[in-house]
Simulated scan of single mutants.
Amino acid sequence: MKSSSLHLSECLKTAVNAAHAAAAILQAHARHRGDLIIDKKAQNDLVSQADREAEAAIIETLREQTPNFGIVAEESGGSSAATATWYIDPLDGTTNFLHGIPHYAVSIALIAHAGSTCTGEQALQQDTPVIGVVYDPNREELFTAMHGVGAWLNEYRISCSHTESLEDSLLATGLPFRDFSFYDQYMPTLSAAMHGTRGVRRFGSAALDLAWVACGRYDGYWEMGLAPWDVAAGTLIVREAGGIAEDLHHVAPWPIGGHLYAGNRHIAPALHALIQPHLTVAATTGGQ
């Protein structure tokens, strides 16, 4: 694989294989949750033996197949590379997993850096998500996306909903649980959404929230204080499903700062307009 050109179909196959390997480890541990070794990184920020083993399996696959790419992973860190960088969350929804709630996923994304090219395309002008994989092992739902090609749920192409107004929309969000620095910005947006929509859901997995926007289960989604690996794959899946997924402050080409909004082409702008009056600080880094 050339250092400046990305063969996306090969990269997608690699990411899917890595996601399945990680999910097999997670599901094996899920049957014996009481035996897991759990560490507390910070307030409400947990990591288990399952997270670490799943991440190691993903990294092994990615390094074997794409040795020239950078890797940034939730538990082991890492660094970016000149051409492209993998962003990995081996278990998005760790708290759900540890409590036996079957709503969590493996999330893997490839970010192509400015100047890189995809097969048959001109060089990218900015950092761009080009591969997205979100795998829900409990429902056996594999969400995938490839830049410029489309998004799928298992073998079926997906698209965002067609809801046109906020008052008819069902939204997803994530409540502050670890980083409360943006609490005063977030709470007014939640109140406005509760009063101006059909309802708001909080299920505890950003990757699945975005995937569910992409397949039309939710009409829109917003959250603050996330990490890049939480949102990288889902951002592309929403975009390739015909939707919008952007940084809330519009300071980055994708929501690397962890403050984002997403939705179909009607709901996303309306959702951003609802949130924007309450934003006071432009964040440049995610809730890591």
Results as ranks from 00 to 15, higher is better:
257 G>E: 05
75 E>D: 04
15 A>D: 10
79 S>P: 00
288 Q>W: 06
78 G>P: 01
55 E>C: 08
31 R>Y: 04
13 K>R: 08
65 Q>P: 05
181 S>E: 02
213 V>T: 13
212 W>Y: 04
129 P>F: 12
231 V>K: 05
46 L>A: 15
9 S>M: 04
238 V>S: 14
161 S>H: 05
105 A>E: 05
72 V>W: 04
148 G>S: 04
256 I>N: 00
223 E>K: 01
61 T>F: 13
79 S>M: 10
38 I>A: 08
174 G>Y: 00
203 F>P: 02
158 I>C: 09
110 L>Q: 07
177 F>W: 13
265 R>Y: 07
200 V>K: 00
219 D>T: 05
70 G>S: 09
283 A>W: 15
48 S>N: 06
95 T>V: 13
267 I>S: 09
171 L>Y: 07
257 G>F: 09
60 E>I: 08
168 D>G: 06
265 R>W: 06
250 H>L: 11
76 S>W: 02
240 E>A: 14
182 F>K: 04
265 R>F: 14
12 L>H: 08
208 L>W: 07
222 W>I: 01
263 G>F: 00
266 H>W: 15
166 L>S: 10
157 R>A: 13
254 W>Q: 04
54 A>N: 08
224 M>N: 06
150 G>I: 09
83 T>Y: 06
278 H>W: 12
67 P>L: 12
247 D>G: 12
198 R>Y: 07
285 T>P: 02
2 K>W: 03
94 T>L: 08
283 A>T: 09
182 F>D: 03
233 A>C: 11
265 R>V: 15
29 H>S: 14
244 I>M: 11
113 H>D: 07
114 A>G: 13
219 D>M: 07
177 F>N: 05
204 G>R: 01
43 Q>E: 12
214 A>Y: 06
209 D>S: 13
143 F>S: 06
109 A>W: 01
208 L>S: 01
228 P>N: 08
174 G>N: 00
167 E>V: 15
113 H>K: 04
83 T>A: 11
